[in-house]
Amino acid sequence: MIIDLNASVGHYPFRRLSHRSPEEVVALMDRHGLDRAVVTSLHAVFYRDAHQGNAELHAAATAHGGRLVPVATVNPRYVGWERDLAEATGPWKMKAVALWPEYHGYSLGDSAGRAVLAALAERNLPVMLVQRLEDRRQRHAWDRAEDLTMATLLEAAKQHPRLRFLLVNWAGLDGARLAAAGLKGRCLIDFARQQVLFRKEVPKLLATLGAEAIAFGSHLPFDYVAPSLIKLANLEHLPAADHERIAWRNVAEFLGL
């Protein structure tokens, strides 16, 4: 069993993705043996009214019977976001909320960011922070977003000590600093941009944060899936229970699936 923590559906404005629709994404999952994927809506990132993307995602997830685990997107600078949050995580049963401060024009530390993070903490909903969608060195002229930084993350963790974090598509994470910021036990990190062999970022995170902190992630459909399957295969020396945690159980427990 594999659950992919790092996946999305929809069009991306700056590059053609071969697998865009929910059906295409599920077909891609089938091809690579992925049982379920935790998905965000790219449309929700780029629509002015993000919640329209949530509605699309809810319909897609419902149509695919549990294969796609939807994550809501909330833009705290948009009118009525609290009601949207309530709908997405209430009747639509979305288990986490993605924030895109770089795309929606705020920071996690300003009034909008603090308000939405506090609302998630109050509801015990994990926040998903995607460090980046693409490498900035190839950015489109209209793409002005920057990567989220470790400093931003640590400050948010400090300001919201009960909030749980899904850290998706991150590189450069320092496990010791995350632990020192109190994130051990309240964050889950996918390994799409971390190496098991050679640079050994994954073993280092395992050593500092434990097997409960790491999850399979591929960043599909932006990236090829096979690199992450190779990493999972290269972790087979771990105790079976830890390997299972990384392959799927951590995501299932973190999100209450």
Partner: peptide, 14 residues
């Protein structure tokens, strides 16, 4: 170029 798992993976996936 130092991304060994990824480098092998993308040839396998293509």
């Amino acid at each position: 170029d130092g991304t060994l798992e990824g480098g092998v993976g993308k040839i396998l996936a293509a």
